[in-house]
Design a protein around this nucleic acid. Structure first.
Length: 557
RNA sequence: CGGGGCGUGGCUCAGCCUGGUAGAGCACCGCGUUUGGGACGCGGAGGUCGGAGGUUCAAAUCCUCUCGCCCCGACCA
């Protein structure tokens, strides 16, 4: 490809509204252009990268026996009404009506559609197991699109679905996908973590997210050797606090000290010596008191999981009606109480149930639930954890019979008995993969694509204007490279060398060859690896440049 | 949905407070000189100042409404 005829709209400056590195660089490199909030077009070079990610995923999906198909984005709402998601998903679902007034949606994933087909097609255990996948545009009316490609309202997703006779079959499919994901992200040159993730209110017996650490990531991941978990579900041992001052006993007069900060300061104790009350209301339990160590925060995802039902914070009115005093809440025999696992037996200051009063209480050993948010410095097996921002690039999820039951996807087993198919689902966003690479491999000059994803294998930069011997030599070298197994981009523009180098570094093709008068005179071609802007000493011989470039390329990341 | 910010030529921005009929740099077109890290000279093209309404002799500038985009938070099958 000759750069002079390529639509590669590079920019010297990033768009004024860009903050994330990948957003700035991908726009500057001419890979993507914005259409609207969370809506992006791929320019030709960018689309080649996207297609390369797709190619990596496709090859690994095919390698584990998954079969590619294609289902439509526009979906009759009827299917989603059957699964219950038409009502449960709410505002994030794009909804519209066709000309006949029938309710339609833009699918945000395809569990319903594929399960609907499988329900019609699969009758017997002999037809199972199956794994199917597609690449398709997904619509999600995100409340807040952000950071270029990291959170968009329309994006292509690879989603795969497994269909098995039983849980044991699901485990096999899940493991195959899990292993394929490791190969995919490794081939894409990403640093990533497989993290335990929330299985949500849908139940399901397991879920993992694949997280690529980067500054613009919108999830937090807790990390320790051998451990990686989304902070939403992470568990760790709390940092210790010194015991409560010996001289504090019984009732304490604490006027106006209705917050943890004020109370800790007023009593001159650590926030960890306090008992923090978090009153909640749930459907089945009503008003319930949850207690945590004063310096800890509730993790709402973990709490909902522990409760097994949704909850909301209690209102002041509800507390008052129950005879409680907001700001001075403490253990109370009249209300059901829950205690966080970080509350070791010992003495704590708790609300006294009356205004301006706290009491010292002794917590005994008792039932605990783990519902607090972990913090950097907490430990796992004695090792402190760190918390890093990361972007979710893929997930795998054991669905069980969540969709097969409502969609009527059953099969007859060997005994002629009807059973629901056991399912899993497995998603990857290629655009996020590309953006995560840009985040991790971007520098102030541009992006450094790994071989597997790069839009071209090698970029040839010609120095010197057309008609000169060095340009004619570059033209000939381009022809040789074009005939080689390498995909070559030829910067044949009549531009200053500095502009060509700057554009090459922005675009991030892994190997750059430079041919000008200087190199022509010495019979060499300069070669530079984009990763680390590392020059190949003395370049390569012009007479054998195509073969040597290929050899160099094979050793690149 | 709450809070904050921004819409002026393709891009990045100034001008707005204090109203007087639109500017810079880069990019673009022509000619010439240049050619190993984003050149220079001369000439040129390009903007209903997001939109609507209002105030005024006069609105990019003041007022009202509205649309769009970004950031923080909430939300995120």
């Amino acid at each position: 490809m000759r750069l002079s005829s390529l639509l590669l709209p590079t920019e010297r400056e990033p768009p004024s509204d860009a903050e994330a590195l990948s957003h700035k660089l991908m726009v500057r490199a001419g890979l993507i252009r914005q259409v609207g909030a969370g809506l992006w077009s791929w320019m030709p070079a960018g689309w080649r990268i996207h297609q390369n990610v797709v190619g990596v995923i496709r090859s690994e999906m095919d390698a584990i026996g998954a079969q590619e198909l294609l289902m439509p984005t526009i979906t009759p709402a009827e299917l989603w009404k059957r699964s219950g998601r038409y009502d449960s998903v709410d505002a994030e679902l794009f909804r519209f009506q066709d000309r006949k007034g029938a309710d339609m949606i833009l699918a945000m994933s395809h569990e319903e559609t594929l399960t609907f087909h499988i329900a019609h097609i699969v009758r017997s255990y002999r037809q199972l197991p199956l794994q199917l996948y597609h690449f398709q545009t997904k619509g999600r009316d995100e409340a807040r699109p952000r950071a270029g490609l990291l959170r968009t309202r329309e994006f292509i997703m690879k989603d795969a679905y497994s269909f098995d006779r039983d849980e044991a079959g699901l485990d096999v499919a899940y493991e195959a996908q899990r292993a394929a994901y490791h190969r995919i992200f490794a081939r894409c040159g990403l640093e990533f973590y497989e993290c335990e993730s929330d299985v949500g209110m849908m139940g399901g017996s397991g879920a993992h997210e694949f997280m690529a650490p980067c500054a613009a990531g919108e999830n937090d991941v807790a990390l320790a050797p051998g451990y990686a978990a989304n902070v939403e579900v992470a568990s760790a041992d709390p940092q210790t606090v010194p015991p409560l001052r010996e001289d504090l006993h019984g009732e304490l007069h604490t006027p106006g000290q209705s917050t943890i900060e004020a109370l800790a300061a007023g009593l001159d104790v650590s926030a960890g010596n306090l008992l923090k009350a978090f009153p909640i209301v749930t459907e089945s339990r009503g008003l319930t008191m949850l207690f945590l160590r004063g310096d800890h925060r509730v993790n709402e995802v973990k709490l909902a999981t522990q409760l097994g039902e949704p909850f909301r914070p209690a209102t002041e009115e509800e507390l008052t009606a129950a005879g409680q005093v907001p700001g001075y809440l403490g253990p109370n025999p009249d209300l059901p109480s829950l205690y966080d696992a970080a509350l070791l037996p010992g003495r704590y200051v708790a609300g006294g149930g009356r205004p301006d009063t706290h009491v010292v209480v002794s917590l005994e050993v008792g039932r605990r639930i783990d519902v607090r948010t972990v913090e950097a410095g907490d430990t796992i097996d004695g090792t402190p954890i760190t918390i890093e921002p990361a972007i979710e690039i893929g997930n795998i999820f054991k669905l069980g019979t969540r969709y097969s039951e409502p969609m009527g996807a059953n099969y007859l087993d060997q005994d002629g008995k009807s059973r629901p198919i056991v399912m899993g689902s497995y998603g990857i966003g290629p655009a996020r993969v590309a953006a995560a690479v840009a985040e991790q491999q971007g520098d102030e000059r541009g992006i450094s694509w790994p071989r597997e994803l790069a839009p071209w294998d090698v970029e040839l930069v010609a120095i010197g204007k057309s008609g000169t011997p060095e340009r004619e030599a570059a033209d000939r070298l381009y022809e040789q490279l074009a005939a080689s197994p390498l995909d070559v981009l030829y910067d044949d523009r009549d531009a200053k060398p500095g502009e060509k180098f700057a554009d090459a570094e922005l675009l991030g093709v892994p190997l750059r060859l430079t041919l000008g008068k200087r190199s022509l005179d010495s019979g060499r071609v300069e070669a530079q690896r984009r990763r680390g802007l590392q020059d190949v000493e003395d370049g390569i011989a012009l007479s054998d440049a195509a073969a040597q470039a290929e050899a160099l390329w094979r050793e690149l990341p």
